[in-house]
Design a protein around this nucleic acid. Structure first.
Lengths: 237, 237
DNA sequence: ACCTTGTTTTTTGTATACAATATACAAAAG
DNA sequence: CTTTTGTATATTGTATACAAAAAACAAGGT
């Protein structure tokens, strides 16, 4: 294992962004389908079915399944294949608890790291959210996407790349619940003001307040969602 | 995508634990090799080389690489393949910061959840650590493994499965640094007492103290490691 | 020397084929 | 009628083959 060759980098490190392997495309396609509820929890994803349906072979699809498993969207059992991960109150709560702690951490760090341009980006992102809410607040997908962007920018400010990536995935996982629990969107609209307060805290470099706001933000959303799930489970009986 | 068949579960859910796919075996093999430093950072892992060396085909190996990427041990670039993830001070610090927050969270929850049997397990794990240190403290691997076990038990007590899994992976990533920074082992020996104090806090259901101890534990380790890395980098000049 | 450019070689991406295993179904026994 | 057990079918696991792309190399121009 010691025949190590240093990988010589090319002269210019050109943007390789647009190059996407089939696996990566499959991941986004399937992930979106799961998030938006087009494929249901516990639905079985047989390799042949899905590969036929998407017009690809099984090899890249299997790899996509593995990545989706690591992101928490499917569950792959050896020799049994992939099923869409279920949506339980327990899972939602577990994820929220982790997210809450990590976002508070990131917000605290962000308060120390944020410069003017970073704050401008945040303000702009929140303005776009406001605009979309006031004009025609129909499109759920856009609303959730703009909100995701705001938080993605916020988390990237902290400077800890691994931390912000981790939070991004947790938020993606929770998006699935948002698509069911549409009532949470009114809650989302209210949170635009909280975003403003957060931005103010960052400007003042007030880490503690930033942490508190984000934590309350997240915990309130968790409460509302779990309450909703409990109700729905009870109604189902 | 709606031809959903519910996967009927067999009458008895027998232990499927010993069944391991080739991919899973490869993951553990390669992960261990990376952790123990047998394969060096930035070393390129060409599919043909490694597959020949391990006597498998490329297909399961590619899948193993993908999983290892999600665990942070290799970096896979499209059309360029897999390289062993590098060991930088920045990465170490980023991981430690996340770990510290999550372990504190887990310890706090554990203080609320821990019952007698859980605490007994912890005591036993720490006793085994003590024993190994006093008798013949040569084997680094065993020492690190016993320590990992203690923390794994601790984290599982919190009841949040996703949280404890996440911490386990972060700890595995940091193991790589432990293999380089062997001096940290004396620090590890000292920490056995801290484990005792932590166990006492759990017994008293004192969440706050438990969090504080774990946080200090983790932060001290981070400081020591980063200090070490900085020195080594400077020496290299 | 350095930077092109064209060619060869290596390496990854995807598709397919075959083997191993699990599931589903049906017949036989209790 | 229920349970068991054998057999057929469906599905995943692994290996291989071919296509596409990248890296390495070499020759020619500046």
């Amino acid at each position: 294992m010691s025949t190590s060759h240093q990988l010589r980098s090319p002269r210019i490190t050109l943007a390789r962004a647009e190059i996407q392997s089939l696996r990566e495309k499959l991941v986004t396609t399937i992930r979106d389908a799961i998030i938006e509820g087009k494929i249901k929890p516990n639905e079985r994803l047989t390799e042949e079915n899905v590969s036929m349906m998407l017009g690809v072979s099984r090899t890249p699809l299997r790899e996509a399944f593995l990545q989706l498993e690591s992101e928490g969207f499917v569950k792959v059992t050896p020799r049994r294949g992939a099923v869409v991960a279920e949506l339980s109150e327990k899972d939602a709560e577990e994820i929220y608890i982790i997210k809450s702690a990590l976002e508070a951490l990131a917000a605290g760090l962000a308060a120390r790291e944020a410069d003017d341009s970073a704050i401008d980006n945040l303000i702009e992102a929140n303005e776009r959210l406001k605009q979309h809410v006031t004009t025609r607040k129909k499109d759920v997908r856009v609303l959730l996407d703009l909100n995701a962007r705001f938080h993605s920018i916020l988390n990237s400010i902290c400077g800890n790349e691994k931390l912000s990536q981790l939070i991004d995935i947790l938020r993606k996982q929770l998006l699935r619940y948002n698509y069911i629990y549409v009532a949470g969107l009114t809650h989302l609209e209210a949170s635009i003001e909280e975003h403003d307060r957060l931005i103010e805290a960052l400007k003042r470099r007030d880490a503690e307040t930033a942490e508190t706001i984000i934590k309350a933000h997240s915990d309130a959303a968790r409460e509302a969602l779990c309450e909703f799930i409990r109700k729905r489970v009870q109604e189902a009986k």
